[in-house]
Design a protein around this nucleic acid. Sequence first.
DNA 1: AAGCCGCATTTTATCGATAATATGACGGCA
DNA 2: TGCCGTCATATTATCGATAAAATGCGGCTT
Lengths: 336, 336
Amino acid sequence: MARVTMADVAREAGVSTMTVSNVLNERLPVNEPTRARVMAAVAALGYEVNLTARHLRAGRTDTVAFIVPSFHDYFGEIADKIAPLIEADGRHLVLERTSASPEHEMAALSVARLQYYDGVLLSVAGLDRDQLDRVRTPKPIVLLGERDVPDRFNHVRLANEEGARLATAHMIEHGSRRILALGCTFDTAHMMSSDRRAGWERALRDAGLDVDARHVVPVSTYTSAAGRDALLDVIASGLPFDGVFAVTDVIALGAIAALAESGLRVPVDVQLAGFDNLDMANFVPPGLTSVDADHEGVAETAVGLLRRQMAGWTGPAEHVVAPVSLVVRGSTRGGA
Amino acid sequence: MARVTMADVAREAGVSTMTVSNVLNERLPVNEPTRARVMAAVAALGYEVNLTARHLRAGRTDTVAFIVPSFHDYFGEIADKIAPLIEADGRHLVLERTSASPEHEMAALSVARLQYYDGVLLSVAGLDRDQLDRVRTPKPIVLLGERDVPDRFNHVRLANEEGARLATAHMIEHGSRRILALGCTFDTAHMMSSDRRAGWERALRDAGLDVDARHVVPVSTYTSAAGRDALLDVIASGLPFDGVFAVTDVIALGAIAALAESGLRVPVDVQLAGFDNLDMANFVPPGLTSVDADHEGVAETAVGLLRRQMAGWTGPAEHVVAPVSLVVRGSTRGGA
DNA sequence: AAGCCGCATTTTATCGATAATATGACGGCA
DNA sequence: TGCCGTCATATTATCGATAAAATGCGGCTT
C-alpha cells in the first residue's frame, strides 16, 4: 500500500523527477518521446500527485472554505449556490462548521486551520467586532452575515432593516394592526434580529401605528420549535395580534404550526411573513410570504470579492449591502 | 507577512526546533525553565503550527471528510449529527459536495483529494457498483446511502423497503385503498426509490389490494417542485387516489402544496406519508407522517465504523441496515 | 577513579513536490 | 575548427515539520 511517488515514476520512465513534474504541470517544454514515456509510467503505476507536498512547496491548495454556523437550511442553500462559482475557477469548495459558538469560530479562524485554504468565506454568527478584530490572517477572506465587522474585512450583508420594513408594511397595507416581531429582540448585540426589529418598527411608525414592546417576542434559539413555543406562549397569554413578522423562515414555519394548532387561520385571522425565502416557503400551504435575500446574488458578490483578493488585489475592503425584495404568497392578503 | 516558523521560535527561545516541537506536542519531556522560554517565544511571535508540513511529515491531518451530493436538507441534517461525533475524537469534519454527478463523485474520490483526510464518509448517490469497485483507496472509508455497493466497503443504509411498507400499511389500515407511490420507480438502477416502491407494493399485497402500475409516479428530480408538478399531473389526469406515499419528505412537501392547491384535504380526502422525518415534518400543518430514518443512529453507526478503521482495524467490512420506524402525525388518520 | 545510566537536548534524515539554477548536446556561423 | 546560443533535461535547495538516532552531562556504583 506504499504510495507511488514522483520518484517512482521518474525511475520507471528513466528520467528525473523534474521532468515528470514538468510533464504533469506543463511548465517547461518536454520532448514528445520523453513525455510519452512519462505518461506511460504514470498510467502503469497509477501515480497521483501528493497535494500536501505540493501545497507545502508551492503554497497553493486550490481549495476555498466556507465556514458556517451549521450545515442546516439557510447555509446549506447558500453553499449550494457558492460551490459552482468556486468550481468555475478550477477550485474546490469545502464546508466547515463552527456550531455558532465563539470558541469554535475562533478555532476555525486560527491561522493554523486557514492555511489549508487559498481563501475563506466566513459566515459570522458568534463573533463580535472585537473578537473579529483580533483575527489576523494573511489569507483572502470575505465575511458574510448580519454582524458589525471591522472595516478592514470585505463584508456582504443583507438589507435587514429594509426587508423587515417591506414585510411589515405589506401586512399593514392589507389590514394588520397588531403585528408581532417573532424572534426579534432589542438586544443590539445580536444585529440580525435587532436590525430586523428596527425595520418592523419603522414600518409601524411610517403607518402611524404605535410600537408595543410586548409585540417583540424573543426566541430561545433560531429553530422552528422555539418559534412555535414562543408564539404558543403569546397566544396563551391572550395578547391580541393579527400579524406576525418572523425573523427567519425557519421560525415562520414554527409560527405556522402554532397558528394551525390554535385554530387561527392564515391569512384570514393572522397574516404571516418570514425572511430568507427558503425553498420551502414556496410549498408550505398557503405559501409563505417572505423577504427574498437573493442568495444567488449574495453568493456572486461574495465570491467576486474573494476571487479579487485571491488574484492579488490589495485595495480597501468593501462593505456590500445586498438588496432585498418581498415575495408575496398566500400567507398574506396581498397574494393571489 | 512572512509566516512565523518553528525555527523562528527556536531562535527566539535559544533552543533547537525539536525542543519547540517537543514542548508543543508533549512528546519528549522538557525541563520546566526551557518549556517556559519556549512558550514565551511562541506567544511573543504568535506562532502557529503549519498543518500542511505536519501532515507531510507525520501523515495525519485529524480531519475527516463527509462527501455529499448536495449541501441541502437531508445531508445538512445528517452532517450536523455527524460533526459532534467526529469532534469528540479531537478531529475535524469538513463537507465536500459532488453535485450527484458520477464525474464529480469520482473526482472527489481520486486518491489525490482523499490524501487530505484521515478518513472519509461518502454518501453514494451517483456511482454504481462497478464504478465504486474501481475506487482503490488506502484510506478508511464508509459509504452511506441506498445503493448497492461492493462488499469490501463498510456501508450503512436504511431499511428502505420496510419503511415504505410501514408507511403504506399504516395508510391502508386507516382506510386508503388507492395509494400513489410518488417519486418511486421500477428502474432498479435507482435503488432508493425502487426499494421503497417494493415496500409500498408489499404492503398492498399483504392487504390483498392489487398493484396498479399507474400509481407509481416518477419525478424528474428529488425536489419539492418536481413532486408538486408530478402530483398535479396525476390530479389533472383524473386518476382517482386517496393516499400518497412520497419517497422523501422533500417530495412530500411538494405533494402537500399540490393537494392544497387542488382543494384536496389532508388527511380527510387524501392521506400522506413521507420518508426521512426531516425537522420540518413536525411543523408543516397538519404534521407530516414520516418514516424516521434515525439520523442520529445512522450517524453513530457510520462514525463508529470509520473510527474503527482509523484506529487500524482491518477486519472484514460491515454492511449495516439501520432500522426505521414510523412517526405518525396529522397527515394520516392514525394521528392524534 | 573509571564506567555506566538516565535524562534533556540537539543533530540528522526525511516526508514529496517544485523553483531556481546548472549541465550538456547540438546546430549555426565566422 | 572553435565559439556561442538554444533547447531539453538534470541537480540542488527548499517548503516546515517530526521520527529516530546521537550527544553531552551530572550522579551513582564498585
